[in-house]
Amino acid sequence: MKKLIALFSMIFIITSCSLESNNQNIYYELLPVDSYVMPAEFHVNTENLIVVKFKRPTTCHAFDHFYYELDDFTRTVAIQSIVIEGNSGCTALTNEIAEQTLRFKPTETGTYTFKFWKGKDSNGQNLFEEVVIDVI
């Protein structure tokens, strides 16, 4: 009886393991900032909110996090998306605008420059929209 149970258990384990791959291709892609909403000034040691809007190119694109680079009083911002291409493919989205909130908590007063990445030009050069804002 124990041998029969062991045999059935072994058959169950072997048949429940799938050797097929799900053929998913996963990668990350930067998306340009379409627009943003921010206050006229920020306050030091306070969480300030910046609403960032961007276009999702396909149904396979999802927000992962903000690409956020610091350089003294300059902040470079873009959208880091995760792209999951599965067996069913991706559907192009033409006008889907998504938005995420960037939380900015400056620790020093001064004039900050935000560089929102707008994509690349025809020569492959990065394009930025710069906003200068005071932190009081």
Rank of each mutant, 00 (worst) to 15 (best):
102 L>Q: 04
91 T>Q: 15
89 G>F: 08
114 F>A: 01
90 C>T: 01
85 E>L: 05
85 E>S: 01
89 G>L: 07
80 Q>Y: 03
110 G>D: 07
78 A>L: 05
109 T>S: 13
100 Q>M: 12
98 A>K: 11
82 I>D: 00
78 A>I: 04
107 T>K: 15
116 F>V: 06
94 T>H: 15
87 N>C: 01
87 N>F: 05
103 R>E: 09
113 T>L: 04
114 F>N: 00
93 L>K: 09
99 E>R: 12
86 G>S: 15
83 V>I: 15
106 P>L: 08
85 E>A: 01
83 V>T: 07
77 V>G: 10
114 F>Y: 02
104 F>G: 06
88 S>G: 09
114 F>K: 02
78 A>E: 06
76 T>A: 06
99 E>V: 03
85 E>W: 00
116 F>R: 02
96 E>L: 14
80 Q>A: 08
78 A>Y: 05
95 N>R: 09
102 L>P: 12
93 L>D: 01
94 T>F: 15
110 G>V: 07
116 F>C: 05
86 G>I: 00
103 R>K: 14
109 T>K: 15
80 Q>I: 03
116 F>L: 08
95 N>D: 15
84 I>Q: 06
103 R>A: 07
91 T>Y: 12
82 I>S: 03
97 I>Q: 12
94 T>E: 14
105 K>C: 12
106 P>Y: 08
82 I>C: 00
101 T>E: 14
98 A>R: 09
104 F>D: 04
80 Q>M: 11
114 F>T: 01
95 N>G: 12
96 E>C: 01
115 K>N: 13
101 T>D: 04
106 P>E: 10
103 R>S: 12
104 F>L: 13
104 F>P: 03
97 I>H: 04
108 E>K: 15
81 S>D: 11
114 F>R: 02
91 T>G: 08
80 Q>H: 06
110 G>F: 05
100 Q>T: 07
92 A>H: 10
101 T>W: 05
112 Y>L: 00
95 N>Q: 13
98 A>Q: 11
86 G>R: 02
101 T>P: 06
77 V>W: 10
89 G>Q: 07
98 A>N: 08
100 Q>D: 09
89 G>V: 09
105 K>V: 13
96 E>R: 11
79 I>K: 10
111 T>A: 06
114 F>Q: 03
80 Q>T: 13
101 T>S: 09
86 G>D: 11
80 Q>C: 02
113 T>M: 03
92 A>G: 01
102 L>N: 10
116 F>P: 05
84 I>W: 03
104 F>I: 13
94 T>I: 13
113 T>Y: 01
95 N>K: 11
113 T>G: 00
89 G>W: 07
100 Q>F: 02
97 I>S: 05
98 A>F: 09
109 T>E: 15
115 K>L: 07
78 A>P: 05
79 I>D: 12
104 F>E: 04
104 F>Y: 15
96 E>H: 14
116 F>D: 06
116 F>I: 04
86 G>K: 02
97 I>K: 12
84 I>Y: 03
101 T>N: 06
92 A>W: 09
77 V>S: 05
115 K>V: 01
97 I>D: 07
99 E>F: 12
76 T>F: 10
85 E>K: 08
102 L>F: 14
101 T>Q: 10
109 T>A: 13
86 G>A: 14
113 T>K: 11
108 E>A: 14
93 L>P: 04
93 L>Y: 04
77 V>D: 10
100 Q>I: 02
96 E>D: 12
88 S>H: 12
94 T>N: 14
116 F>E: 06
114 F>P: 03
111 T>C: 00
78 A>V: 04
